[in-house]
Amino acid sequence: MKQLGSQTWQFTTRPVILGSSAVVGPEEGEGPLASDFDFIYDSLKMGEKTWEKAERALFEKASKLALIHAGIEQEKLEFFVGGDLMNQIISSSFAARKLGVPYLGVFGACSTSMESLAIASMIVDSGGATYALAGTSSHNCTVEKQFRYPTEYGSQKPPTAQYTVTGSGCAIVAKNDGSSKGPFVISATIGRIMDLGLKDPFNMGAAMAPAAADTLVAHFRDTGLSPGHYDLIVTGDLASVGLPIAKKLLADEGIPMEETTFNDCGLLIYNLDKQKYAIAGGSGCGCSAVVTYGHILKRMKKGELKRVLIVATGALLSPLSYQQGESIPCVAHAIALESGGEEA
């Protein structure tokens, strides 16, 4: 591994994503990416008694499927890096019981997907493991219960509110033995905390936009690349409010984002015209995870995309901090993926 600039790790061995999985709930299953998901539950309870158990079931299903898709036995797995939005990251830690491998729990709110992938890739790249699992999950009801109101409570949400995705995405990162066609993890840009003083927990897109912009600028500065290097750049979940703000911040800095396709996982996952409950778009750890591990990796495997940059954004607030009137610190982590084939 090599450090580029001040924020970027370049993975010199190019670890490979051997297999991945995206498991979602019924609402995501009605969205435009349904065909890219590996398993769609038809009920939010997933046959469990509590919302928390349901989220854990999602996570366990996703980790199992990722192992199957990677074609490796569970015994071969050497590391698990995971996290979620619950207090004390119970979903991933409890799901880790079933895996029985060394485990690092991480928390980066909705940026956890790329945070865990960056750490897993670093472990594999540095020779710390041959196979590592990176995964995360979120469940609409557990998040509503912990961060907002009881799920059935009738409160009107403003037009800036985002809808937490019910889903879990996992990826098996493996040592590159030269035989795989990828996709490969090329580099990771680790974000700094950005807090521009926004306090509204129902407008996280605007709070997270500066973090996404800052990490993107850092990535281009550290790597010396321009946006046109990538076929697609997606942000984590800025949704319909945050994405235009990030575009404006980047345009103000003279970053030519028009060279590439610039989109957002929170906008891709739902059809906002039909799925009105999603309001401004999707959010939650599961959002960027299932869009990346389901939709984007499948498109890369089909050859539709060669180089992709994923910038997962996280709003690092707690119910306690916003009730005490604190502003929302945000972070964004970027990962560059590249599919195999001829070298560029």
Partner: peptide
């Protein structure tokens, strides 16, 4: 890409300035 200066600009941006910048999008 040309040398970006966002790091400084965002670091120096005040809460009021950002609220003003983001307002048309909210």
């Amino acid at each position: 890409t040309k040398q970006p200066g966002i790091k400084q600009r965002l670091d120096n941006m005040t809460s009021e300035e950002y609220k003003k910048l983001s307002k048309p999008f909210v």
